[in-house]
Design a protein around this nucleic acid. Sequence first.
DNA 1: ACTAAATTTCGATGTTTAGCTAAATATCGA
DNA 2: TCGATATTTAGCTAAACATCGAAATTTAGT
Lengths: 106, 106
Amino acid sequence: MNSIFKALADPTRRKVLELLRERPMTAGELADRFPVSRPTMSAHFAVLKEADLIDSLKIGTTITYQLKLTVLEDALLGFARLFSPTAEEPATPRTDPTPPQEGTTK
Amino acid sequence: MNSIFKALADPTRRKVLELLRERPMTAGELADRFPVSRPTMSAHFAVLKEADLIDSLKIGTTITYQLKLTVLEDALLGFARLFSPTAEEPATPRTDPTPPQEGTTK
DNA sequence: ACTAAATTTCGATGTTTAGCTAAATATCGA
DNA sequence: TCGATATTTAGCTAAACATCGAAATTTAGT
């Protein structure tokens, strides 16, 4: 829980999550969109993964990252609900967009 | 916006916000509930204030802090909505709990 | 086996942050 | 004005963090 907020505290990482909202992307693809080095991006990915906000799937030499939407939402809404228990309901009983898949890169 | 997430990244600060959810409290009152020194708590208050998440009102020697609920909610839900535009609506058109008050301590 | 490509790990550096104690500031009540 | 109380500022240390370039790792293709 703390790790999620820590992960969200950095603008680069938030942007990464936003990019992954649309579709999964490879590490290189993501890195190309930021003005920092690849090792730096790699570290950001590690933080996001540590927080369980993304999944990684290795295919050949490339690693594809995918947003774990439900984890992010549960954390955000769970926290928000702490402050206004009446307000935000679970709302969309979403059909889990995470397909059976455990590609957690070894 | 970044300052808000930075502020939320620390567990002590999140707890402070939770305490203020119920009612405004003085700096000393809050400090008594944490196992850290008053100066340290003061620094946390400064971060929360910098992020515009709390208001301070000085009466005599004591400073009362109050949660700015709408700021917190707007940030949280605004960000959450980035990821599932369909899901969470503004919901409760809340009657602003912040009374006309500009006690921003000097 | 060799080479190229994608990504991470390693080691170093500068910045930020949380924490402390001690001192300063402000306000109240006597 | 004095003394007590509430809070912050100042000055510090230690740990955490973001960043880099260079090297290591892994895999694909020839």
